[in-house]
């Protein structure tokens, strides 16, 4: 019998991409996608359920669909996308309700995969060169997004302890670059001059977006439990990242950096303080545990940067090449359920 999978945040970049990948997997029977907003990518057989962001109806959905796997991709790591309060609601309260539903009596759920971020390690001058999964950050979390991720992770720890029969996988993804994803980092790298901090050239690490999806599929397929850092091999100085993108760096002053970065937000570039810390101190995570579990990366850190640089060169030349996808429930339902539709099996 195939897997029955629930994906959170179907309308988000990761949820949509993951559902598309899962649809190609013949071992996955059912894919249910949850979100407040409609999916932005074309989906063949994923069922979209509109739920409020704190998932209050989730236990009913879990019971009704009998899903055995929950892929929780809907943790917000980009703090520029919403207010701190909304972010807290999604990351903390959302995860709390999700896990409550997954751990309810008689729940069919046997695996929970959570997509967290290496933001939980922070970025400070007292950090080691590489963080291993069992290490904690050296300074307490200042930003709301970091605190909310730590809280969400701690709920997952409790869940794992209370539900020993469930395979719990916590993936901490490094900063992502790739062909499609838009983050404050990717926006910064698309400026004519890439912001940096005067006198600092820290080592940063990236993971390519395809490796993110492949990793989520991998841990689901192989049912790998545990905590894993997911990041490409190697670390690059920030200046080299800019160089691979064919850009120069434009230094911000090392003191009052936040003030200096302020006007940039009016130009459409928000540099959240997590990112300012990153381009000041850098961060490295040890990715060897996931490799030992059998995962093979397709991109190194430099490879991820190059993949992004190539895609953005193409975009500059031809513009956004893909037509905007518009989800329309009636049309989707027609395609999926009508006996008139001929399916190519």
């Amino acid at each position: 019998m195939g897997r029955r999978v629930l994906v959170t945040g179907l309308g988000s970049f990761w949820g949509g991409r993951l559902a598309q990948a899962l649809e190609k997997d013949p071992d996955v029977d059912v894919i249910v996608g949850l979100d407040t907003k409609e999916p932005r990518v074309e989906l063949e057989r994923t069922e979209f359920v509109r739920a409020d962001q704190s998932y209050s109806i989730l236990s009913r959905i879990v019971q009704a669909t009998q899903v055995d796997t929950i892929l929780h991709t809907f943790l917000i790591v980009d703090s520029t996308r919403m207010s701190g309060r909304a972010l807290h609601e999604i990351n903390v309260i959302g995860t709390l309700n999700l896990l409550a539903a997954a751990g309810a009596a008689g729940s069919p759920v046997r695996q929970v995969v959570v997509k967290s971020s290496t933001l939980v390690y922070g970025s400070s001058w007292e950090d080691p060169v590489w963080f291993r999964e069992e290490m904690t950050r050296t300074h307490s979390a200042k930003t709301r997004v970091e605190r909310s991720l730590l809280e969400a992770e701690s709920y997952l720890h409790d869940f794992a302890e209370d539900n020993p029969h469930v395979v719990v996988t916590l993936l901490r993804f490094s900063n992502v670059l790739g062909t499609d994803i838009v983050t404050p980092t990717s926006k910064a790298l698309q400026l004519p001059a890439v912001p940096s901090i005067l006198g600092f050239d820290p080592l940063v690490q990236f993971v390519e977006e395809d490796d993110v999806i492949r990793c989520l599929e991998f841990v689901m397929r192989e049912q790998v439990p545990g905590i894993y850092n997911v990041a490409g091999d190697g670390r690059l100085p920030w200046s080299e990242v800019a160089k691979i993108c064919g850009k120069r760096t434009w230094p911000l002053p090392p003191v009052f950096t936040n003030v200096a970065a302020g006007p940039l937000s009016r130009l459409g570039l928000e540099l959240p303080s997590e990112l300012l810390d990153l381009i000041r101190y850098g961060r490295g995570v040890d990715n060897r545990r996931l490799k030992r579990a059998g995962f093979q990366y397709r991109y190194t850190t430099a490879g991820a940067v190059e993949s992004f640089a190539r895609a953005s060169r193409l975009r500059r030349a031809v513009g956004e090449s893909r037509p905007e996808y518009k989800y329309e429930r009636d049309v989707e339902n027609f395609f999926r359920r009508s006996p008139a539709v001929v399916k190519n099996e």
Binding site: G234, I244, G303
Partner: peptide, 29 residues
């Protein structure tokens, strides 16, 4: 929160992990 309460030992290893052959070194520009 970053303690090691989610462990890889003793459970969950339903599927034997295949030993992957040594891959080609990745392109590293």
């Amino acid at each position: 929160a970053t303690g090691e309460r989610i462990t890889a030992e003793g459970r969950g290893a339903l599927v034997h992990l295949p030993r992957q052959p040594e891959a080609e070194p990745l392109h590293d520009p």
